[in-house]
Design a protein around this nucleic acid. Structure first.
Length: 859
RNA sequence: GCCGGAGUGGCGGAAUAGGAAGACGCGGCGGACUCAAAAUCCGCUUCCGUUAAAGCGGAGUGAGGGUUCGAGUCCCUCCUCCGGCACCA
């Protein structure tokens, strides 16, 4: 108990000291820059171990780099706009601003308790007008470049949050925040034209290969979803207008027996007015648009649709093709219209069967025939074209290019690319976000707020934050009403605020120049520090933040404001922190430890379950950082997190891990309490050539430890780095020659090695040894290549692949020596006697394997 | 369904240009210290069999096959779990 108290005192002492000597202050002109960045936190609730992991990893990286002589930039800030602030306002009647700044203070205090190596002069908050002024400015930049536009479209609408959502914020057809199934709603909204950058966003992933985790690269590639295919124009029979479709299988063009249009498609209105079955169509369209994607998906496989009674003309054979409307067609992919080839596309096959449409075979397997009557599903593989006029006999691959050429020649289509990625919907019907700096004037239309009028500041006084399906700002009369900057007439501000992902897609640039009030940042400064050398954060941002930030960076690059087109040179994604908790499925609730006796829920008498999930407030399985640090200390928290397992994998928080971490650190302290006195504040060198016996062994062990710790931590294998240090500490405890200079050298190097992992304890033992400056001015130890191996190695001797003995030989000894040595071993000898040696496999310094064959007769 | 990743002691996890499986830690067992306990320090700890013990023998990295003198690691088939995407034409 007493010792834990000491740990906390030590930590406070050195945190104060570091602050006094400005240890983390960023150099204005870096000689050897290294930008370490952790994804900034959304400031809600209480900082827990799940959050902390991210920052501890970043801190180790930063401290290693400091000690390697880099000039580092290591900032922190707050992602502070967003819905929970409004919910707090509704629930507790606190203004979102007050609630947010209180949270920020809370987070800041907790971060300071942990002794993270941030330069606090760089701190920023996205909800600060000094910051969101430039978020607004960024919007205007995109507008000027034609990348921000308004569009009337069917957008994702969360009926519970009463706001629109970007595609990326819809998970399994549900709102990512409240899990309510998302509906379609036709609204005019602001979009960022990220699709313009689709190719670059995919192609530049190559620049990141090997530096970003493969699964993130893959996820982005899939999300952008580029696919090469063919555009084919069918003509509307009535007036010859164009009905383009996108397909990857142009080789099946002669198998088209219908075309299907998505119910949301803009052409639908025209089709309805021309259709003899208008009423039926109206009803169908209304029904399917009202359905959520979840319902549509549920109704799946039963592919519904209605015939319009209208026809299109096939571009190559001139046939009349019936036009259908069906909700299995995605409005937002390709052209929103598909050609129905039931013989060679499973979805079309099902649609055709359901609606009695003909199936026409135009591809046959390379070695076989295909008979319509035997088909129970579509034949989707590549094969040989049949029933396809002059293309008959061509294999699919060349058929596709030939048909493309033919279509191009006739002006009826050709090669085309399609993407899954959609433009980024950034309007939100919310209060707590950066205002969209646009004005709607009845005379001039949409007019941007002049730059000199920025920021458009959020009004303080709002009557009601309750979601109504439109922005609460709309009702703030003195805010929403404004003079048109162009004609001076009465106009209205855009009432919506921006998606908070806009705030976070440029914050890493603002850190470099956070107080600039004349520009979003000084390009010269930014170019000195960018790109971020090491970015650290959670996988969950793979297709959101990490795509948006890359997009914005490219826009700024095109504008000439930054000189790198990828913001994050290296990315590390850490795993989640899980913790077990009790759950009663009978009551359907999380159960506190004290409500459990044995395995029974005291309240209802039913058996409880033990669930393990990611730390979250709603599950009540969080370990809050502040009280933990008060009780155990910051370094204990750090080692617990880092030692629990590989940083990129999910970890299970367990109290036993805390005990181990604490024991290790106290063991370090205890060792130095009795040995630091030997050092006298002088860095000594030893002549390894003169060493022998125990001293030489320790020296070699030290070199090995330095090597492993350096290599492991550069690969984010902090768990094994710590294991190596524990091992070395065990060696130190076992070392008996107390007056040895090697022991002094070991004490010094070990402290420095430990410093990035347990900075407070390391600083303490450093000063215990008589040094007066901070340990972080030290260079991280280098190892001596010549003394990385012991002179003698013990290797296993196998007989037929089974270990039967061990021999000690000099390192680098040859096969003959090893074999002779092995034959001295009684046990090995007993296995070989009476048999003939067929082969001897020798791997230098590793192993000897003697392959024998029984002579027969004896067993 | 498609695309990723993973399956190793009682537990968290080590070890991959193929070469001693289980580093390090937790837990457990034993010893020292103590009036005693805690803490600490020192040992032992994959499983089965055998032995008074040291030891010896066998099995063993999700399952089954294969390549190899030798496979946790490479190849084939399958199972389970986690993550992402999901009518993407």
């Amino acid at each position: 108990m007493e010792r834990e108290y000491i740990i906390r005192e030590i930590e406070k002492k050195w945190q104060k000291y570091w602050e006094e000597i400005d240890l983390y202050k960023t150099k204005i002109t870096p000689a050897n820059k290294y930008y370490v960045l952790e994804m900034f936190p959304y400031t809600s609730g209480e900082l827990h171990m799940g959050h902390l992991k991210n920052y501890v990893i970043g801190d180790v990286v930063a401290r290693v780099r400091i000690m390697e002589g880099f000039d580092i930039l290591h900032p922190i800030g707050w992602d502070a706009f967003g819905l929970p602030a409004e919910n707090a306002a509704i629930k507790h009647g606190i203004h979102p601003r007050i609630w947010t700044y209180k949270n920020i203070e809370n987070f800041r205090n907790t971060f300071r308790m942990i002794g993270l190596s941030y330069d606090w002069d760089k701190e920023l908050a996205t909800c600060d007008p000094d910051y969101y002024k430039w978020t607004e400015w960024l919007f205007l930049l995109l507008y000027r470049r034609g990348l921000a536009y308004r569009k009337d479209d069917f957008v994702n609408w969360c009926p519970s949050c009463k706001t629109v959502l970007a595609n990326e914020q819809v998970i399994d057809g549900k709102c990512e925040r409240c899990k309510t199934p998302v509906l379609k709603k036709e609204l005019e909204q602001w979009f960022f034209k990220i699709t313009t950058y689709a190719d670059r966003l995919i192609d530049d992933l190559e620049l990141l290969r090997g530096r970003w985790p493969d699964n993130i690269l893959k996820q982005q590639e899939n999300w952008i979803g580029r696919s090469y295919g063919t555009k084919i124009i069918f003509k509307y029979e009535k007036d010859g207008s164009e009905l383009p479709v996108f397909t990857t299988r142009a080789d099946t063009l002669f198998g088209v027996t219908f075309i299907t249009v998505a119910p949301e498609h803009e052409l639908v209105k025209m089709l309805i007015s021309d259709s003899p079955y208008a009423n039926r169509l109206v009803e169908y369209v209304k029904e399917s648009i009202q359905k959520s994607d979840v319902e549509r998906e549920f109704a799946q496989r039963e592919k519904s649709g209605v015939f319009t009674g209208l026809y299109a003309i096939h571009p190559l054979n001139g046939e009349r093709i019936p036009i259908w409307i069906g909700d299995y067609v995605l409005a937002h992919y390709g052209t929103g219209v598909v050609m129905g080839v039931p013989a060679h596309d499973q979805r079309d096959f099902e649609f055709a069967k359901k609606n009695g449409l003909p199936v026409k075979v135009v591809i046959k397997p390379v070695d076989g025939e295909l008979n319509v009557d035997d088909m129970s599903g579509a034949f989707e593989e590549y094969g040989i074209m049949v029933n396809s006029e002059r293309f008959t006999g061509m294999p699919s691959e060349s058929g596709i290019t030939e048909i493309q050429k033919e279509l191009e020649g006739r002006g009826l289509g050709g090669k085309a690319v399609s993407y899954k990625l959609r433009d980024w919907l950034i309007s939100r019907q919310r209060y707590w976000g950066a205002p969209i700096p646009m004005i709607h004037c009845p005379h001039c239309g949409i007019v941007p707020v002049p730059e000199e009028d920025l920021p458009v500041v959020l009004p303080e006084h709002i009557k009601d934050f309750k979601p109504k399906g439109r922005s609460p700002l709309e009702d703030v009369e003195d805010w929403i009403s404004v003079e048109c900057p162009k004609c001076g007439g009465r106009a209205k501000r855009d009432p919506d605020t921006m998606d908070t992902f806009v705030d976070s897609s440029w914050y890493f640039l603002r850190y470099i120049d956070p107080k600039n009030d004349r520009a979003i940042f000084d390009s010269e400064k930014v170019n000195q520090w960018m790109p971020v050398d090491q970015y650290i954060g959670g996988v969950e941002h793979a297709t959101k933040h990490l795509i948006y930030a890359r997009f914005i960076q490219k826009v700024l690059y095109d504008e000439g404001l930054v000189n790198v087109s990828e913001p994050f040179e290296n990315l590390f994604t850490q795993g989640l922190v899980h913790k077990s908790f009790f759950y009663c499925s009978h009551c359907g609730e999380v159960v506190q430890d004290e409500e459990v006796l044995g395995e029974v829920h005291l309240k209802c008498g039913n058996r409880i379950e033990v669930l393990t999930e990611m730390m979250s407030k709603s599950r009540g399985n969080i370990v809050a950082v502040a009280p933990f640090v008060e009780e155990h200390g910051a370094d204990v928290a750090r080692i617990t997190i880092l030692f629990a397992g590989p940083a990129e994998k999910d970890m299970l928080w367990a109290d036993s891990g805390v005990e181990g971490a604490k024991r290790f650190l106290l063991r370090v302290l205890r060792f130095y309490e009795s040995n630091a006195g030997r050092v006298h504040g002088v860095k000594i060198n030893v002549d390894p050539g003169a060493l022998k016996g125990e001293e030489k062994d320790l020296y070699i062990k030290l070199q090995q430890t330095i090597k492993s710790v350096r290599e492991d931590s550069s690969e984010f294998h902090f768990n094994t780095a710590i294991a190596r240090m524990m091992e070395f500490l065990n060696d130190l405890y076992g070392f008996k020659k107390e007056d040895s200079p090697v022991l002094v050298k070991s004490c010094i190097d070990f402290a420095v090695l430990l410093a990035p992992f347990a900075p407070h304890i390391a600083e303490e033992i450093w000063h215990m040894m008589g040094f007066n400056e901070t340990i972080f001015y030290e260079r991280y130890p280098e190892y001596d290549e010549k003394y990385i191996h012991f002179e003698e190695v013990e290797i296993p001797v196998q007989v037929n692949g089974k270990v039967r003995g061990r021999i000690k030989i000099m390192k680098g000894a040859g096969k003959e020596v090893a074999f002779r040595q092995a034959l001295q071993d009684d046990r090995v000898k007993s296995y070989i006697e009476g048999n003939s040696v067929q082969n001897v496999v020798y791997v230098q310094d590793r192993l000897l394997n003697i392959v024998i064959k029984s002579m027969g007769g004896n067993s």
